[in-house]
């Protein structure tokens, strides 16, 4: 079998690419589409650095075959900001110093957005469990959790 022609939507944009049948979505994003914001940390689904959404569901792109995305919607970190306007999660990560080296940050942001899309008012515990699939070795998670809770409040329009 030669390379597979895949038609998909990435960050809302109709996209076509060719991939090897074994190629993962992570490799296709990075190597075929030059979308290198999605990071590789382990390739076994244990670190979450490669988090993207597939039809709105959070997944590890290292555990998706690129060919599987035919006809589906893929969301990556590159699609999170609207033009020049950062998503509130991105802004809160900056304000709370919720990143140090920053390599896990795209994955955390994609995962946090998936959480807030389905649960706008999560507890600290919910945030911690929802982000347990994203490893961060720099921050001890404290500032990440605070940034997510703060962004959730802002998105809800809370002023407290």
């Amino acid at each position: 079998m030669g390379r597979i022609h895949v038609r998909t939507r990435i960050n809302g944009e109709a996209t076509e690419f060719l991939c090897d049948p074994r190629q993962t979505l992570l490799d296709a994003l990075r190597d075929e589409l030059q979308l290198t914001g999605t990071k590789e940390g382990c390739t076994t689904g244990d670190c979450g650095a490669c988090s993207v959404t597939l039809d709105g569901l959070l997944v590890c792109s290292c555990l998706v075959l690129a060919a599987e995305t035919e006809g589906h919607d893929v969301g990556t970190i590159e699609g999170m900001a609207q033009g020049e306007t950062l998503h509130p999660l991105q802004q809160k990560f900056l304000e709370h110093a919720a990143l140090q080296c920053g390599v896990c940050t795209p994955g955390f942001l994609v995962a946090a957005k998936a959480l807030l899309d389905r649960e706008p008012d999560p507890s600290e515990k919910q945030v911690r469990y929802a982000l347990a699939g994203n490893l961060c070795r720099c921050t001890g998670y404290d500032k990440i959790i605070r940034a997510v809770l703060d962004a959730a409040a802002e998105l809800r329009g809370d002023t407290r």
Partner: peptide
């Protein structure tokens, strides 16, 4: 079964 990411699949 695994993280939210794993649960997505």
């Amino acid at each position: 079964i695994g993280s939210d990411q794993i649960q997505g699949r």
